[in-house]
Design a protein around this nucleic acid. Structure first.
Length: 271
DNA sequence: CAGCGCCCCTGCCCGC
DNA sequence: TGCGGGCAGGGGCGCT
């Protein structure tokens, strides 16, 4: 379940392999992803070379001279650069084949991912146009977060996971950052002080940076570009640890549900 | 606009 | 061992 650090790790992993490569073909074995993969991709891709791979939130932007291909990994997606002769797995749904016989292969067992053409102004695409700032950018600062939260009644955890507020804060890191900040996930976003948002902001940036440095957290489905699953779960303090003792005070960690997602917190440390 | 719940999907895990 | 059911979750979308 790629969060922003895994997507960034993927971007860094694939870009040097596919940059300047010319697309020879695109092979779609399973068209039904989050949205049906368009049948018209070939005309945008074949014969053109990859200029760069960027990231916006959890979307990867594969840039060509004709425009930009958006790839989202959903919950279980992974991208690898493999020899185009390598027999695909049953969940290897899309190959972008290059003229040097390598290919960029999308595997996505749960098919929550997406492959879409976004044209020459990808940031104007409706999926990207109303996204909030990047969490690691200077634009995402205490002032911004504090102001955006005023009058908001939604729980702070759902607030920081709202992509219109800030992109790339998924369930794992939202839980972790709130624990590190001593903030109870259920508190209304609008009721939290500026000082506490300053703390929270720092922890959001820190957990994401740490995870990118570590090469991405992996729980189940993520496979790194090299094909090695990299475990990092021992670093997580609350996510996946309901019923265990809090690392700080030994109180039993509690699990609740917020918006159909699991929240784990320490009832003593987080107020 | 804010808030909320649904839904896309498969693999895994648990209990019987 | 086989099987049914529940759960996991990113995030867009439709409804109130």
């Amino acid at each position: 379940m790629p969060e922003l650090p895994e997507v960034e790790t993927t971007r860094r992993g694939i870009e040097p392999h596919i940059q300047k490569q010319t697309v020879a073909d695109i092979c779609v074995r399973q068209r039904q992803l989050r949205w049906p993969v368009s049948r018209g991709l070939k005309k945008h891709l074949v014969g053109y070379s990859i200029r760069s791979v960027e990231r916006r939130g959890k979307y990867l932007l594969v840039n060509l001279e004709t425009g930009t291909l958006l790839i989202h990994l959903g919950m279980s997606g992974s991208l690898r650069v493999v020899d185009s002769d390598l027999i695909p797995d049953k969940h290897d749904h899309v190959d972008i084949v290059f003229s040097n016989q390598s290919c960029l292969r999308l595997r996505d067992p749960r098919r929550f991912g997406a492959v879409l053409w976004a044209g020459k102004q990808p940031l104007q695409h409706k999926l990207l146009s109303s996204l909030g700032p990047e969490p690691l950018s200077a634009e995402f600062d205490t002032d911004y977060l504090y102001r955006a939260s005023r009058q908001r009644k939604v729980a702070v955890k759902q607030f920081i996971m709202d992509s219109k507020v800030v992109v790339g804060v998924g369930n794992i890191y939202a839980n972790e950052a709130l624990f590190l900040s001593g903030i109870r996930p259920t508190v209304a976003a609008g009721k939290i002080s500026r000082a506490r948002y300053e703390t929270l902001l720092g922890h959001i940036k820190a957990v994401l940076e740490k995870a990118i440095t570590a090469g991405g957290t992996t729980l189940r489905d993520f496979v790194s570009v090299e094909g090695n699953p990299g475990y990092f779960k021992q670093e997580l303090l609350v996510y996946g640890r309901a019923g265990e003792a809090c690392a700080v005070c030994k109180t039993t960690l509690k699990e609740i549900r917020q918006g159909q997602r699991s929240t784990v917190y320490c009832p003593r440390c987080q107020r």
